[in-house]
């Protein structure tokens, strides 16, 4: 948990709304978190949870015409919400960079990898092309692309999926950013390549000491690389804590649902999974009270606060170190008992 006084990124009470023909979409609804340099925050959630919108808002990559941004995003003390575009452009790429899920759509198909890397470098550094080229080849080599000299002159379609993602990473790191956002960086890759890329990200973070946000739906990936975990659902934070806290003693029924839905490589393969019933909510018409209550099998407080009051994100009191917060109306003692009795033996939770 980031408890230091000066986290590199501090997001406070972020709200993102889109105006559409069907009404207002509340994609992110009051999200607060922080990331220090040298740490990795894993943001977990399913489609529509608001995890990608959060990262686009930090980068200032949302459409300013149709998007309403509220709250505060402090990057190294500077608020980027409402920052003019020309100032934002100076930050983007130099102080903060992003890796996208699909490198094929994020790279320009008409330009060589080398040219794109050189451009990314020269936007922020007043250097000659030759110097930038040297730097680009260095970066390609650093991310483990064999024969970087030759690869420099090739086009994205000549790279395999894993190599393309490496090239993306090289481009995002070429200006040595302090904040790196990786949005599902390995989802499109095969497992053996995914393992290579996750290792690479881990190594690079140690070397460059940046703050990293890793957005994923895969709790396995998160448990391997994240220091902190933020679980999002329906645009809100369900649970937030260190990876140790969230994975060892998850407190939100949605986190349980995710853990018990994932088949594991260990344990009884014949045991049934415990899926979350129903479907994620429409963000046009968010359920009242706790967003998760229509799918929650423990919302026994129905008629009580679950379907009326939005639960606050509160610190756990009875167990583990400070920093573990959860937004759920269930009494803490009951949550701990339920997890130990019913959930900890299913799926990857076991």
């Amino acid at each position: 948990m980031s408890t230091a006084n000066n986290p590199y990124l501090q997001v406070s009470n972020l709200r993102v709304k889109f105006e559409t023909h069907d009404g207002t979409v509340k994609a992110v609804d009051g999200v607060t978190f922080s990331v220090e340099k040298g740490k990795t925050l894993g943001i977990v959630g399913e489609s529509g949870s608001g995890k990608s919108v959060t990262s686009l808002a930090i980068m200032g990559l949302h459409n300013p015409k149709s998007t309403l941004l509220q709250g505060e995003i402090l990057v190294d003390g500077r608020n980027v919400v409402g920052m003019p575009d020309d100032k934002l452009r100076l930050l983007r790429g130099r102080d903060m960079a992003m890796i996208f899920q699909d490198p094929l759509t994020a790279l320009h198909p008409f330009y060589t990898i080398g040219r794109q890397l050189v451009e990314a470098y020269r936007v922020h550094h007043k250097v000659t092309k030759a110097v930038a080229k040297k730097r680009a080849i260095e970066m390609l080599d650093r991310v483990g692309i064999p024969q970087p000299q030759r690869r420099f002159g090739q086009y994205p379609h000549e790279f395999s999926g894993g190599m393309r993602q490496r090239a993306m990473i090289a481009m995002s790191l070429i200006n040595d950013p302090n904040l790196l956002i990786a949005d599902e960086p390995t989802t499109a890759l095969d497992v053996t390549v995914q393992a290579q890329i996750l290792d690479l990200l881990n190594d690079l973070q140690r070397e460059f000491h940046s703050a990293v946000i890793l957005i994923t739906h895969d709790l396995g990936v998160v448990s391997q690389v994240a220091d902190d975990v933020l679980v999002m659902y329906g645009g809100r934070v369900a649970e937030y804590g260190t990876a140790q806290q969230v994975m060892k003693l998850p407190q939100h029924p949605y986190t349980w649902g995710l853990l018990a839905s994932m088949p594991s490589l260990r344990g009884d393969p014949e045991a049934d999974l415990l899926p979350i019933k129903g479907n994620p909510p429409s963000l046009l018409n968010v359920p009242p009270g706790c967003v998760f209550h229509p799918r929650c099998r423990y919302a026994m407080l129905k008629g009580g606060p679950c379907d009326r009051e939005v639960p606050e994100l509160l610190q756990l009191r009875t167990v583990d170190e400070p920093g573990h917060t959860v937004a759920c109306h269930l009494p803490e003692r009951q949550r701990i008992e339920t997890y130990q009795e019913e959930i900890s033996s299913v799926g990857v939770a076991q």
Partner: peptide
């Protein structure tokens, strides 16, 4: 190698005995 490449939520931060294949298919 395939099995050891699967990120497993039960093995928090563990990386012992992992096999890393080099290169692509």
């Amino acid at each position: 190698a395939l099995l050891s490449a699967v990120p497993d939520a039960t093995r928090l931060g563990e990386s012992v005995g992992r096999i890393r294949l080099q290169g692509d298919v």
